[in-house]
Design a protein around this nucleic acid. Structure first.
Lengths: 413, 413
DNA sequence: CGGCATATGTTTGACCCCGCAACAAATTGC
DNA sequence: GCAATTTGTTGCGGGGTCAAACATATGCCG
């Protein structure tokens, strides 16, 4: 708690901003790009219907976007009835390509992704726990170089997005604390920018937040504007999409659910408290209950558990049921306070979902009120372990969507 | 949990909307009104600076708003240096007056509030626990009639806002469940509309959500875009302001924090679960720990506790310390997941704040991570018991701010 | 006290963006 | 092959904001 800082952070003199005409254009260009990026190709006439804009306006917008190289028109497709066919509009992936990077506890991954979500190439390599930031950055830069060289000649790189398993400051990509990576106060954005030798700004965000974004835009959460993504790795993190937008909180820490108190008579957490959610439902709880030494972590742990569970080992199944129950109880709490439509399980909960499912649902039912509970579903992620990687790409592509023309101008300048 | 409904609620075909020119004008009119409503009078030249709009545009906007009767210009005030003085612009309260109503567990209140937050008059009467919705509505309608008659002749009523201690559906003002009022499935919006004989739509919202809105706009949270309001009455509810906007969740249930699990080895809750936050930190916990019979509730309980605490009664002080600790632990959880700048205590925590303060801070410190904890402060509400009442007025006035011209057109039509 | 510098309200014209209407084009169905 | 239908295209008009020139009100200074 800080009893003085709040006064400084308070911007009592903030007053609402006005909006000029160019903002209008920017918004409408963005609306067209966003529509194509998220929901795929669509005819011009359908575009007029969904945006509510006039035929002539749509024609003008598409003309500008075509000049910018962001969209292209395919052959006209005949509708079911009579009438002049309307050409299909789609994104032009190479018109805006981003480099996305994921720095997880046990692996690092890199991908090149074009507008519309087209993944050109991706690569993932294991990462030893304890590797320093400088080492990790070097490995990532090497991978990234290969992927960038493999891009088509006409591809235009527009940004870099990074997901990292830690607490980050979005403004400059500074990682304040990544306990599971063993990092603290790392200027990750700067380090990556210089290692990659790219002039583009590097957008750094929390892994769980990006997982949420990815599942919302490309995974099981498409069309579900209120969802929570649970990222289970060494700890537990949550990413929240509220009303279609990432919910970050005052300083970007929103969703740090791993250390919420859920069982005061539970186990000691390495954060110093007792009975945090992740001591009852996290990786360490699973190892403890399954009788597996704590030296076995990450993928090794998951593989062991999966093998034993598939063999029908009762101790393992009981352990899964127990952490599933605690996972569900904590999810119930999140359902009460966030009222989501969907809770998506990622990280190591994803491969284990079939074994956790029943207990998770029971726990969530117990732990949530009827009203919000009736609205909420729980599901395994649709993107598997790549969710944060896809999310990092979406983060970087969001810049293009927010200002298609401005972004292209900046690039050519 | 609902495994099928989610598919129906999913609007996979939602595509972004375009924006036409009239939307621009509406936004800019609203920006001017909002600025004046929230931050008070300001000169025209300062308005050009804060909105970023051109001098001539501001002149035009103010001209239209003056014609609408929503703002008025005062005498020009000389700046510090040379130059032509700029006239001060302010809201014209009687140009848009709303009726606000609060239906709490132990009292009901009514107020008439004009644009800019000017409270013309307000009244509050006790409400016996168990009173039916029809009875409460009748009493409220009587109070409201008196206040409306007392308004100045040129006052123009533009809306009605209602805060109720229960789960409500905003679209039509339907109260699904208000356990502490003893109501279930009450068409409160319709009942009030017909009892008041007003043609205006009646906006119904949750009490805690309105408390949050009020403290953000007029209380201790002015200028703090990330805050949580804790409403302690018979139960515990939370209202969340995120990035300056109310956070409601998928169905308006967000902030139902009273029944989050915090102590599995705690007490049985009337919701059926064990160890909910409100069984450890709510009114019933206070009575139980202080050794006061559960028949003493609401204001009676608070008065008794306050009297004994002021006398230095150790049992009472220990009870306050204990529920303060649990309150703080729960607040710590909310700090972790929402990352607010400020947590505002309302309801019965407000009068008891000085006795709870120390334990609440300790609990919150223990229950939250360093990073989000460092950003967050905890404070007693600045509006006392009237917060939800003020919030209901702000809710209704928000309609005028969102579309100043449209609202006036509708009224004269 | 009067002129000058300064800041701001006012007026006019231009530009940008979108909608509308008329026309042209492309397809279906008879 | 012609009518009906739907949609792209073009030109015009209106709403909204901005920029510039002008008018006005004040402080400052000799």
């Amino acid at each position: 708690m800080n009893r003085t800082q709040i006064t400084a952070g308070r911007d009592a003199h903030h007053r609402p901003k006005g909006v000029a005409a160019d903002e209008l254009r920017r918004h409408n260009l963005g609306a067209v790009v966003e529509s194509l990026h998220l929901h795929g190709p669509i005819s011009r006439s359908e575009l007029t219907a969904t945006t509510g804009l006039n035929r002539s306006t749509i024609a003008d917008l598409i003309g500008e976007l075509t000049d910018l190289g962001l969209v292209e028109e395919g052959p006209a497709v005949a509708p079911s009835g009579p009438g002049r066919p309307s050409p299909i509009v789609n994104t032009r992936p190479q018109g805006a390509v981003v480099l996305s990077i994921e720095l997880s506890v046990d692996s690092v991954a890199v991908a090149t992704v074009g507008l519309g979500g087209h993944v050109y190439e991706q690569a993932r390599v294991p990462r030893p726990r304890g590797e320093s930031a400088a080492e990790t950055v070097e490995i990532v830069a090497g991978l990234a170089g290969g992927l960038l060289d493999a891009l088509p000649a006409d591809a235009i790189l527009t940004g870099v997005g990074v997901g990292v398993a830690g607490v980050t400051r979005r403004s400059d990509g500074f990682v304040q604390l990544a306990p599971n990576l063993g990092w603290r106060n790392v200027a990750l954005g700067e380090m990556l920018a210089s290692a990659l030798r790219l002039s583009h700004p590097v957008l750094v965000a929390n892994e769980a937040d990006l997982g949420a974004l990815a599942e919302y835009r490309r995974g099981v959460g498409v069309g579900v504007p209120h969802l929570i993504y649970i990222s289970g790795e060494a700890g537990i993190g949550a990413g929240i999409i509220h009303d279609g937008k990432p919910m970050l909180g005052a300083a970007g820490y929103a969703g740090e659910a791993g250390h919420t108190l859920i069982n005061p008579s539970g186990h000691l957490c390495r954060c110093g408290a007792t009975g945090c959610w992740e001591t009852e439902a996290g990786e360490s709880a699973l190892a403890r209950l399954a009788g597996i030494p704590s030296s076995v972590t990450g993928l090794g742990l998951v593989d062991t558990i999966l093998a034993r569970a598939n063999d029908g080992d009762q101790t393992t199944l009981d352990a899964l049921s127990e952490i599933g129950r605690w996972l569900g109880l904590g999810i119930g709490n999140l359902i009460n306070v966030f009222n989501p439509q969907l809770v998506v399980l990622g990280g190591f909960y994803h491969p284990l979902f079939t074994f956790l499912e029943k207990a998770v649902f029971e726990g969530a039912r117990l732990g949530s009120l009827d009203a919000p509970g009736d609205v909420a579903d729980i599901a395994a992620g649709g993107l598997g372990p790549d969710a944060p990687l896809i999310g990092a790409a979406e983060l970087a592509l969001s810049e293009v969507i927010a200002d298609p023309a401005g972004h292209s101008r900046a690039r050519s300048g």
